[in-house]
Simulated scan of single mutants.
Amino acid sequence: MDAPTEIRICIDVDSLERGIAFYTQALGLRLARRLGNDWAELLGASSPIDLLANASGTAPLGESHAQRRSYARHWTPVHLDFTVTDIDAAVARAVAAGAVLEHAVEDRKWGRIAGFADPFGHGFDLLEFKGRGYDEILNPSP
């Protein structure tokens, strides 16, 4: 079996224009291209991010499934962490663009973290590493 060569992140939004505005303003991503009226590719992170416009109440797994999209705040075991070099500035930029700060900046051994919800109910974190990043947890400094 071939190993994957790239990870593409797909984020459902209820409005493509609002999604583009939020992710470009809040995180400094840039619109690379539109792939139709309901799909936009954003670049600037280590993986491309595809915004996919899907109306609230539509079925993500086909009409035979009971589950429906909802853009109210929700939790999923998968979330995105975006690393930044200045978390205080990044937090201010994200909130100004419409993110909800759910967990204020907190210091950890490896750096600093803040938790958010985007305008579409998806959770994400901002991380600012210090020193050796996560290695600060595993190994004492040399």
Score class of each variant (00 low, 15 high):
residue 33 R to V: 07
residue 24 T to S: 02
residue 25 Q to A: 07
residue 57 G to R: 08
residue 61 L to P: 06
residue 37 N to R: 10
residue 66 A to M: 04
residue 78 V to N: 04
residue 48 P to I: 06
residue 23 Y to P: 00
residue 49 I to N: 00
residue 66 A to Y: 10
residue 23 Y to R: 04
residue 21 A to W: 03
residue 59 A to M: 12
residue 22 F to C: 01
residue 21 A to M: 07
residue 64 S to L: 13
residue 60 P to K: 05
residue 73 R to M: 02
residue 45 A to S: 12
residue 19 G to C: 13
residue 71 Y to A: 09
residue 68 R to L: 08
residue 56 S to Y: 05
residue 26 A to V: 02
residue 56 S to A: 15
residue 41 E to M: 06
residue 76 T to R: 04
residue 20 I to K: 02
residue 46 S to D: 04
residue 36 G to Q: 09
residue 69 R to P: 01
residue 68 R to H: 01
residue 16 L to Y: 01
residue 17 E to K: 11
residue 69 R to N: 14
residue 41 E to Y: 08
residue 36 G to R: 07
residue 54 N to S: 14
residue 66 A to S: 07
residue 24 T to L: 03
residue 58 T to G: 05
residue 35 L to Q: 15
residue 59 A to G: 15
residue 49 I to R: 00
residue 51 L to C: 00
residue 65 H to A: 10
residue 68 R to W: 11
residue 70 S to V: 04
residue 57 G to Q: 07
residue 56 S to H: 05
residue 77 P to S: 10
residue 61 L to R: 14
residue 33 R to L: 13
residue 28 G to L: 09
residue 70 S to P: 03
residue 51 L to E: 04
residue 73 R to P: 05
residue 21 A to D: 12
residue 44 G to H: 01
residue 32 A to W: 05
residue 55 A to C: 11
residue 25 Q to N: 11
residue 32 A to L: 10
residue 73 R to T: 11
residue 71 Y to C: 13
residue 61 L to T: 09
residue 78 V to H: 10
residue 76 T to A: 08
residue 29 L to H: 04
residue 27 L to K: 02
residue 70 S to A: 09
residue 70 S to C: 03
residue 21 A to N: 05
residue 64 S to V: 08
residue 51 L to H: 01
residue 69 R to S: 01
residue 75 W to S: 06
residue 30 R to K: 07
residue 33 R to K: 15
residue 45 A to Q: 00
residue 22 F to L: 06
residue 35 L to F: 12
residue 43 L to H: 08
residue 54 N to K: 09
residue 38 D to Y: 01
residue 60 P to E: 06
residue 55 A to K: 03
residue 29 L to R: 05
residue 39 W to C: 08
residue 24 T to D: 08
residue 53 A to F: 00
residue 59 A to H: 15
residue 74 H to Y: 03
residue 78 V to T: 12
residue 56 S to I: 12
residue 65 H to P: 01
residue 34 R to W: 11
